[in-house]
Amino acid sequence: MFKQERIYTYDGSLDGLFCVVFRAFEDKVSPSAIIPRKAGYQVPLGEILPVDTVSSNAQRVWKKIIDRSDQKNARKISVAFLSERPETDMLLWRYLNKLFTHPYGDYYKNMLDEDVYEITQTARRVRMEVHRFQGFVRFQRTRDDIYAAAIDPDNDIVQLLAPHFKGRFSDRRWLIYDTRRKYGIFYDMQQISIVALDDDSFSLTSGNIRQNARAVDEDYYRTLWQHYYDAINIKERKNDRQMRSFMPVRYWKYLPEKDR
């Protein structure tokens, strides 16, 4: 359909990506690559067009997605976007192109189509990681009675953790902080807000909060938990492979039971 190709860059947000899609349709120029302008990003040779994020254009793409499919599918797209696999941007482009131009109204349900299947799988992987982190978040109490946790997930999921933890710990203030992406969510018993902290708030090796900020009995609870982890294991049934497949090593660094 599009005769020409070009490299697009955008600001790294979902709205930004939607603006790339908007622009590509407007110019009838198909992307050969879509690259977020993150720190240190590199662009291959070719004609490059940096796209600015214009909220009204993004809104029009969003509305078109809902028109051509439904709310649930729109949600799936926004979840898939949080996947940080580099091929996801182009996958989303191919998928949206099909969604907007395919004559069959429910083509977006066709799991025999490679891109439809991949989008579904990508969203599934992101949701799987959200599900895992509902378990792997480890809070430590601060002296001001805030429960604080560091995480370092593969995908940009910290905001997707908000509803779960808000439902569970609605009677205390808590913070979940992504140490790689350097932002987190903070709940003040009213609402959740996005926060950025000083770099030394959490240890990047253990996820511990600064010693002088920790409540006095935190080490005790950490010890109790480590002892529990050892006591509940059945040595005669050792199955390291299975343990690692459910709890991959990359997730261990902020887990007290694995940090010894």
């Binding site: 895992r132 509902q134 378990g135 509940i232 294991n233 040595k235 050792k238 199955n239 343990m243």
Partner: peptide
């Protein structure tokens, strides 16, 4: 929800 896995591969 599983919160951890012991060395015998079982979920905690």
């Amino acid at each position: 929800i599983c919160h951890s896995f012991t060395e015998d591969g079982r979920c905690i």
